Amino acid sequence: MMGFGWFGWFGMIFMLIFWILIIVGIVWLVKWLLNPGAGGSKGSTSKERALEILDEAYARGEIDDEEYERRKRKLLEE
């Protein structure tokens, strides 16, 4: 034993929690800086993603012109 008693264990646990919180904070900050639009309005980003998926399906030939236009109008109405 190192001779610190109870405070030694408390200090080690506190320091471990402190560093974990610092690392989590840095990771969150980096993610936020790299993708600033993700936190704000989720409605517009999910709508944009849905339009991208629709465009990809149309480009692959999975849906025809009429289906593409119908789905696009439906997405833009919301």
Rank of each mutant, 00 (worst) to 15 (best):
K42H: 07
S44V: 13
L51A: 00
I23T: 07
F18G: 03
S46D: 15
W28Q: 11
Y58T: 02
L33N: 11
E48M: 08
E52P: 06
P36A: 00
E52A: 12
R60Q: 10
P36E: 02
S44T: 08
L34F: 14
F18N: 04
R49H: 09
G37K: 05
Y58L: 10
A59Q: 12
G40Q: 03
R60P: 08
K42F: 11
W19R: 04
R60N: 13
I17H: 05
T45V: 10
I53P: 03
V30A: 02
S41W: 10
Y58M: 08
G61A: 05
I26W: 02
L21A: 09
K42P: 15
F14Q: 10
W28P: 15
G61N: 05
L29V: 07
A38P: 04
L21Y: 07
L29Y: 04
K47W: 05
I53T: 03
A50L: 07
E48V: 07
Y58W: 14
R60S: 14
K42L: 11
I53E: 05
A57N: 06
I22N: 01
R60M: 15
K47M: 14
M15Q: 09
R60Y: 14
A59D: 06
I20H: 00
I53A: 03
A57P: 04
L29P: 01
S41F: 12
E56L: 11
K31F: 15
K31S: 08
G61P: 08
D55G: 14
I23N: 01
G61F: 07
E56C: 08
K31Q: 06
S41P: 09
G37H: 05
A50H: 03
G61S: 07
L16D: 10
R60L: 15
W19E: 11
W32C: 13
G61T: 05
S41G: 10
A38S: 11
L16P: 07
W32T: 13
K42V: 09
P36N: 01
W28L: 09
R60D: 14
A57I: 02
G39T: 09
T45N: 13
V24E: 03
S41H: 11
V30K: 00
L33C: 13
G61I: 08
I53D: 06
K42Q: 09
W32D: 05
L51N: 00
K31L: 12
M15P: 07
S46G: 06
W28C: 11
I23S: 03
I53Y: 06
W28E: 11
D55H: 03
L33K: 12
I23F: 02
V27M: 10
K47H: 05
K47N: 09
R60I: 04
K31P: 08
E48L: 11
R60W: 13
G39Q: 08
E48P: 00
I53F: 10
M15N: 09
S44I: 13
G37A: 09
G39E: 15
I22E: 03
W28I: 08
W19V: 10
A57H: 12
M15R: 09
I26K: 01
Y58A: 08
V30N: 01
S44G: 04
Y58I: 04
S46V: 14
G43E: 02
V24Y: 02
D55Q: 03
L16W: 12
K31D: 12
A57M: 13
K47Q: 11
E48T: 07
A59S: 14
V30C: 02
L51W: 00
R49Q: 13
L54C: 00
G40H: 03
E52Q: 12
G43F: 07
K31M: 12
